[in-house]
Structures are given as C-alpha cells and as structure tokens.
Amino acid sequence: MARYRGPRLRIVRRLGELAGLTRKSPKRSYPPGQHGQARKKKSEYATRLEEKQKLRFNYGVSERQLVRYVRKARRVSGSTGTALLQLLEMRLDNTVFRMGMAPTIPAARQLVNHGHITVNGRAVSIPSYQVRPGEVIGVRQRDNSRQMVEANLQSPGLANLPTHLEFDKNTFTGKVNGVVEREWVALQVNELLVVEYYSRKV
C-alpha cells in the first residue's frame, strides 16, 4: 500500500494527536465522516487496528514496512512492543525530526531524500536508515541545505530533545548517544495492542 498523501487533519481527527504527522490542530474533536458524532462502541479488533494505524501514519511507513519492523522486533530479546518503538524512533527521518531540523516527520523525510543530511560526514538519502549510538548527524555544507535547517530550527516540531540525542544549533550537528527510552517516545500509543494485532498475521 502506498504512503498516505491525503488530508492529515482527517487522520488526526480519527486517531488523535500525531506529533510527527502535522503540527496543526483540528477544529472538530469528533472523527470525520457522516457518522463521526454517532460512533458505536469499538470492538477489540477496531481498537488494535487504531493503535496500529497510529504507528503507520505518525512514522510514515507502509504496511509492508511495519510488518517487517514487527518481525525484526520479535527477534530482539525483551519486550517486542518496546523494541518496535525503538526501531521506528531510530529511523534517520525521525531522528532529524526529534533534533528539531524539521517541523514534521514528512518534512524530515524530504530533507533526507533530497540529500541535505549527512551521517558521519557522508550524505545519506535513505529515510529508513537505522542510526546507531555514536553516529553524528549533520547538514551538508551547502547554502540551501543550511538555510532550510536554520529556518526549521526557529520553530521545531517538538520542544524537548530526548536524552539519547544531543544537538548543537551553531554547527547544525547532532550526536546519537544511545537508544531511545520508552518514556521519550512522543506518540501516545499502546504498543502491546499493535503486537497483538500482528500476532495472527505475522
């Protein structure tokens, strides 16, 4: 399934606040559609599906990619749900977003795709690249690259920098000091329900 390119506020109204998808707030608090205000009680399946969709839309991954991440998380020792969130949080596009170099994850993905971001001094144009502790994230030494990041730093998407990251606004460089902890994941999601959703599918 292709990446969603429709109205983002429609998704926010249905799933709740998604800090990585958009910074806008919907004017209406109920879900979209003709029956948005008269929704019946959700089934257990609908609740699990909703939590899974939060991950998909917030991090901008396809269904196939998310299934791949779930399989990878299952091979890691410890909690599968926490491992899944860590895999998604340690993507390069999300790391650029959390450092404040882009207002949203889609904007960060575009920065990476267009070759504005470097990892350890080398340009990386793959948004799904898994950053590792010790790696240095920077901006290419080009005027347009630095101007774009400088403009984005004036109003970052999230105010608080996670403890596993550090960023120098003067040099436009950041460093990954470790793996993200669960408490620093900005998305309000129940990852256990996501694991349950995929328990019969993967």
Rank of each mutant, 00 (worst) to 15 (best):
S128A: 15
G138W: 12
E166N: 09
R140S: 13
V139D: 06
L153T: 06
S145F: 11
K169C: 04
H164K: 12
Q154R: 15
F167D: 06
V131F: 04
D168F: 02
T163H: 10
V131I: 14
M148K: 15
P156K: 11
A151N: 10
E135H: 10
L165Y: 07
E166W: 01
F167M: 15
R142H: 15
R142M: 09
P127Q: 11
N152Q: 10
N144T: 13
F167L: 09
E135L: 03
G138Y: 13
S155V: 07
R140W: 04
Q147A: 14
E150S: 14
R146G: 02
T163I: 00
N152D: 02
Q130C: 06
N170C: 01
R146K: 15
R142V: 04
V136R: 13
P133M: 14
P133A: 09
T163E: 09
L165A: 08
L161W: 05
R146F: 04
S128P: 04
E135W: 04
R146D: 06
G134C: 11
L153E: 06
V131C: 06
L165G: 03
D143T: 13
N144Y: 15
Q154M: 09
M148E: 12
V149W: 01
I137K: 01
P133D: 07
L165W: 02
V139G: 11
K169S: 13
N152Y: 03
H164G: 01
H164P: 04
I137Y: 02
F167Q: 02
Q147Y: 00
V149R: 00
E135F: 04
P156F: 06
L153V: 05
Q147K: 13
L165I: 07
P162N: 03
E150P: 00
E166Y: 00
G138F: 08
Q154H: 03
G157L: 05
G134R: 12
R140I: 14
V136G: 03
F167S: 05
M148T: 08
N152C: 08
A151D: 06
L165V: 07
S128H: 09
R146N: 06
R132F: 05
P127V: 05
A159E: 14
N160H: 12
G157F: 01
P127L: 09
R132V: 14
G138A: 10
I137A: 02
A151V: 10
R140D: 00
L165M: 08
S128C: 02
G134E: 13
E166F: 00
V139L: 11
R146W: 10
A151Y: 03
Y129R: 13
N144H: 15
D143Y: 11
P133T: 11
K169I: 04
P162D: 12
V149I: 14
F167I: 04
Q130K: 11
Q147E: 14
S145W: 01
N170F: 05
Q141P: 00
V136I: 15
V131Q: 07
E166T: 13
P162G: 05
D168K: 13
Q154G: 01
M148I: 15
I137W: 01
Q154E: 11
V131E: 04
Q147W: 05
L165N: 10
E166H: 06
R140G: 13
N144C: 00
M148N: 04
V131M: 03
R132L: 12
G134M: 06
I137E: 01
N170T: 09
S145E: 06
N170W: 02
L165P: 08
N160I: 08
V139H: 08
L153I: 09
K169F: 00
